[in-house]
């Protein structure tokens, strides 16, 4: 009889608890079934009136059931603790987010980082030189003596005093580096260079180059091709071939104009490469022995290659930018896109 009653109470609790919506109701439920005046408490109080066997049997059940009810209530309590009316709290998730405002690198920096990372992974050291350079390092040490017509090949910004110039090429750092290091070495030198040239959509008087300089005892034109192909394939994430055409720079012999297969069409010809399949990137060559001797190396002991390519060209190709003056234009509408 009593056992049935106890089991009924448990069942009642199990069904009642489903209807509970908040803490107050749960409190009422707990009071109702386990409170001092509850039926259950009454049963427990009256256990003493039973026979010893009965008392043992029913007592055990009652205590077990009490623990079970307590557990049901505790579980429900936990459930109710974090509960809110989710529907009431519905929001318009398409409203704009509260932006923290992250900044942006100038694309020249992005390209520069990529170049530095690729070359670092190929064992190249990153070197550097001054931007205000002496005529010696900018010209003489590069086999461009005073009054040489090759000084006209780059329109240089000269300073009024001290035989100084804004460096017209990163190659100005070659002799500086070689005076302090012995081959073999492989370096790149990214940096700012200056040319006194009229500006337009594809010409800037201030731009960035990265010099590569690899010197050893047997460095050859094939090595130049290889390093260049590995680098550009990695940079553009596509298979790039290089092409060398004859050119002239006083600081290299032989000298090359350096082209790569068009990264848009892969060399078949498209609008981007004006149908030719090749993109012109800059100058390269085998280091002139006069540059080695100017840096204090013995003549014909070493061989090396060098190139100087512009960052802007690469960034323009990569990001399809059609106006070079944007890089130094200081316009946030440009920078914020990268």
């Amino acid at each position: 009889m009593l056992e049935h009653k106890i089991n009924d109470i448990k069942k009642q609790v199990q069904s009642d608890v489903l209807e509970i919506k908040n803490g107050a109701e749960l409190f009422e439920l707990e009071k109702k079934y386990l409170g001092r005046k509850s039926e259950f408490t009454n049963i427990l109080k009256n256990l003493k009136d039973l026979s010893p066997e009965e008392r043992k049997k029913v007592g055990e059940l009652a205590n077990r059931t009490k623990r079970e009810i307590e557990k049901i209530i505790a579980t429900k309590k936990q459930e109710l603790d974090g509960a809110v009316d989710l529907e009431k709290e519905r929001i318009d998730v398409t409203l704009p987010g509260a932006r923290r405002g992250v900044g942006h690198l100038n694309p020249i920096s992005i390209v520069r980082n990529e170049i530095e990372d690729i070359f670092t992974s190929m064992g190249f050291e990153i070197a550097d030189g001054p931007e205000v350079e002496t005529e010696f390092y900018n010209f003489d040490a590069l086999n461009i003596p005073a009054d040489h017509p090759a000084r006209d090949m780059q329109d240089t910004f000269f300073l009024k005093d001290d035989k100084l110039a804004m460096r017209s090429q990163t190659s100005a750092m070659q002799a500086r580096f070689m005076q302090k290091h012995k081959p073999p070495f492989r370096i790149i030198a990214p940096g700012k260079v200056f040319r006194n040239e009229a500006t337009d959509a594809t010409h800037e008087h201030t731009f960035y180059q990265f010099e590569a300089l690899v010197v050893g005892e047997n460095t050859n034109v094939g090595n130049l091709k290889h390093i260049a192909e590995v680098f550009f394939s990695e940079f553009f994430r596509t298979d790039v071939k290089v092409r060398l055409r004859p050119s002239y720079f006083p600081f290299t012999e032989p000298s090359f104009e350096f082209d790569i297969t068009c990264t848009m069409c892969g060399g078949v010809g498209c609008k981007g490469c004006r149908g030719g399949g090749w993109l012109e990137l800059g100058g390269a060559g085998m280091v002139n022995q006069n540059v080695f001797t100017a840096a204090g190396y013995p003549r014909n002991k070493y061989q090396g290659f060098a190139w100087g390519f512009g960052f802007e060209r690469l960034a323009m190709m990569k990001y399809k930018i059609d106006e070079v003056r944007l890089f130094h234009g200081g316009d946030l509408r440009f920078v914020k896109q990268f």
């Binding site: 992250v102 100038n106 931007e131 946030l332």
Partner: peptide, 9 residues
């Protein structure tokens, strides 16, 4: 949150 400028020298 800073954006990078490159200016002339």
């Amino acid at each position: 949150g800073f954006d990078e400028m490159y200016n002339y020298s």
